Computed example of a mutant assay.
Amino acid sequence: MNRPRKGTFDVRRTITATACLMLAVTACGTTSQNSGKGGPATQAKCEGPGGKYVIGMSQANVAEPYRQRMDDDIRAAAAKVPQFEVKFADAAQDNAKQVSDVENFLTQQVNLLIISPNEATPLTAVVKKAYDKGIPVLVLDRKVDGDSYTSFIGADNRDIGRQAGKYVAEKLLPGGGKLVELKGLPGSTPAQERSEGFHETLGTKVQVVATGVGDWLREKGQQQLDAILKANPEVDVVYAHNDPMAEGAYLAAKAAGRESKIKFIGIDALPIPSGGVKAVEQGRISATFTYPTGGKEAIAAAKTLLVDCKQVEKKQTLPTQLITKENAERVYREANG
């Protein structure tokens, strides 16, 4: 009987282990997503086109039209991927409920988590928990703290704020004037970044006479401006962090007989009958900025991870566009085919 020379077995074992490591991404059926900063890798169980995958979608609040559209975009995109089943949860703007929603998805052992966090800090720990468990996590639209997630998909809110500030300073109030800012939910990153960017380019001629917090909701935007106008009857522009709050502010101004003297700016530009593009076209809002939901991009990333067994970028920045009376009708028509 021929016996291997001393040391041969150890060499073969080392070669075999090395080969398996080199082939782990493809032959071993996983795709590794590293945080890029020394954090744990996310191992997406990839069975290729023959696999079946359950995706958990944790939504901050479907009372906002933008978030309902995001869910609709995810459904439409997922319907084109036969391997996918998507389960939805609505946190109803409640941080504790959203944490519980994600925990439930982890108990159900979903293959991938998509989350649009209500607020950043309260959702950070549970997102990290999912990521550390090896579940790919796609953070959509609103950020969490740190980088314990697979990929962030969303527009540049600070840049949108800068564009809005520049539009006010150069187009609406070049000689100066009085402005009210209606902010979104304070703990959400879009609200913070849309405000910070706005003030970077607003300049010194425009006076911010009041700010209000409308929590992204139309009725709260209306309530906030109603109270503000009673204390500040002279207002030239309202900058709202989203279109529903801008529409609510318009209603408050109309009730006070001031709607023709105040210009309104929003963000989202949903191309639906009740959305911001139509509001601009019909003259209630002076301008808005497109803010893609990222729904189809999230499903595309999920397909890359789970079906194609490939990596995705840590950050995907979606484009935005200024919508005014000059291009609103065309944008709406093109968006709806």
Rank of each mutant, 00 (worst) to 15 (best):
T8G: 00
V11D: 00
T16V: 15
N34G: 10
K37R: 13
P40N: 13
G51M: 11
K52D: 12
K52N: 13
V54A: 08
V86S: 01
A92C: 04
N95S: 14
V102Y: 10
E103Q: 15
L113E: 01
T124N: 03
K128V: 02
K129T: 13
A130S: 07
V139E: 10
K143I: 10
D147A: 10
F152Q: 06
I153M: 04
G154W: 04
R158K: 11
R162S: 01
A164Q: 15
V168Q: 12
E170M: 08
G175N: 15
G176R: 15
V180W: 07
A191F: 12
Q192G: 00
G203Q: 13
K205C: 15
W216N: 00
K230F: 13
P233R: 10
V237M: 08
V238F: 06
V238K: 04
N242L: 06
A253R: 01
A253F: 07
R258W: 04
S260V: 06
K263H: 03
K263V: 01
G266R: 04
P271Q: 08
K278T: 10
E281Q: 11
I299D: 04
A302Y: 10
L305W: 06
Q311K: 14
T317A: 04
T320D: 05
T320K: 02
L322T: 15
T324N: 10
K325T: 05
K325G: 03
A328S: 06
R333M: 09
